[in-house]
Design a protein around this nucleic acid. Structure first.
Lengths: 219, 219
DNA sequence: ATACCTATATATAAGCG
DNA sequence: TCGCTTATATATAGGTA
């Protein structure tokens, strides 16, 4: 008669992180109690003081202390203040260093930013002093949506006239291909300006605030 | 034939203070290392943090810590008083928030910086072209092909800057998809203008969100 | 999680160098 | 104090309840 083994008995396991969560939990419980038992025995056998603190995978705290965790920690901390303190200070210092570095970086960027802004303002000044500017030479980088719309309209007008002029020239002269192509380029580009869409459509689907309203076509 | 036992093997001992001093010392050493080994295994197996502090009979301190005794004690001490714990966590969170904020600030400044730099470059361009193209103040119906070509170039330049400005405005606002479409619409109409595209590189951190597709035939 | 079971892996008491 | 050995005491993996 074959006897079925009641148990496969203890198996050797590699000392590495246990993958199965529930399995790990069981092992943790067993070994934790085993550890505490060993500590307890050591206390009794040798009359020493021991404190153990364990943070479980679930962030729970387990502690063993003989006589008490607190008193042992107290003794440890007051006895080893230089170590503890220096380690802590190192960590603090490092963290602060990071922040400081960020701040330094930030300051540098801000300085560059200021310089660049000053430069831009200077250029603006120079341009302002120029008497021959067209209205649209005005710093259009400062234009708002309304101005942009006006600009668009003006450019359309301009374009129409350019096309007209180009055609006039083409008709009246024997044009060579390269010139033709050049004009063609203009012309084709001018197509864009054609508007079926002059309307400033703050279309209903778009927000009135952000819709540039150039419709679908143009600029 | 009687075989002499080479050793009597491990003997059971009562868990009570070991009387013989040297004997106790030996046991202490052995069991201490055993305890630390068990702790180490528990750390590895379960991925937990453990700190052990032992005061030997000779008042010497032995400690085991993974990752470090100090940090675990710190955690333990600040966690134990529930009030202080939350306070500490708040402080930590606040500090981390500060760092995050600094980073965000930095990113914003960098973006502004980039924009301002681009603007400065644009102004340079304008200034440069201003110096050489006031010729087109003249009634353009008198312009020849060459002048028309120059006009086209100027208009392209202007267009680029207008687009840039439009994008600047868009970027400055919280953009949503409909806005994106709107801008895209603008681009598509402009196709006529050939594009080498002075690309507007929204800084790399925002490129996915704010890239208005200057690469694809827009404008 | 906790307790118990079995079979085995480990820790360690004693003793020696 | 430590290393090493041997024989044995304990701890514990894998189950089940």
């Amino acid at each position: 008669m074959v006897k079925k083994r009641a148990s496969i008995g203890r198996q050797k396991i590699p000392i590495a992180k246990i993958p199965k969560k529930n399995h790990l939990q069981v092992t943790f419980s067993k070994r934790r109690s085993g550890l505490f038992k060993k500590a307890s025995e050591l206390c009794t056998l040798c009359g020493v003081e021991i404190a153990i603190i364990v943070f479980s995978p679930a962030e729970k705290v387990f502690s063993f202390g003989h006589p008490e965790v607190e008193s042992i920690l107290d003794r440890y901390l007051t006895r080893n203040p230089p170590l503890e303190s220096s380690a802590h200070q190192l960590i603090e210092a490092h963290r602060n260093a990071n922040v400081r570095e960020l701040n330094i970086h930030l300051t540098q960027i801000l300085n560059q930013f200021e310089a660049e802004k000053k430069r831009g303002e200077a250029l603006d000044q120079i341009r302002k002093s120029n008497q021959r500017q067209f209205w649209w030479e005005a710093p259009f980088n400062q234009l708002g949506l309304h101005e942009l719309e006006q600009l668009r309209a003006s450019m359309e007008e301009l374009k129409k006239n350019v096309v007209k002029q180009a055609n006039k020239i083409l008709i009246g002269s024997t044009t060579n291909s390269s010139q033709f192509l050049a004009v063609n380029g203009i012309g084709s580009s001018a197509d864009l300006f054609e508007n079926k869409h002059t309307e400033f459509n703050a279309s209903s689907t778009m927000s009135n605030v952000y819709n540039f309203g150039y419709g679908n076509g143009l600029f």
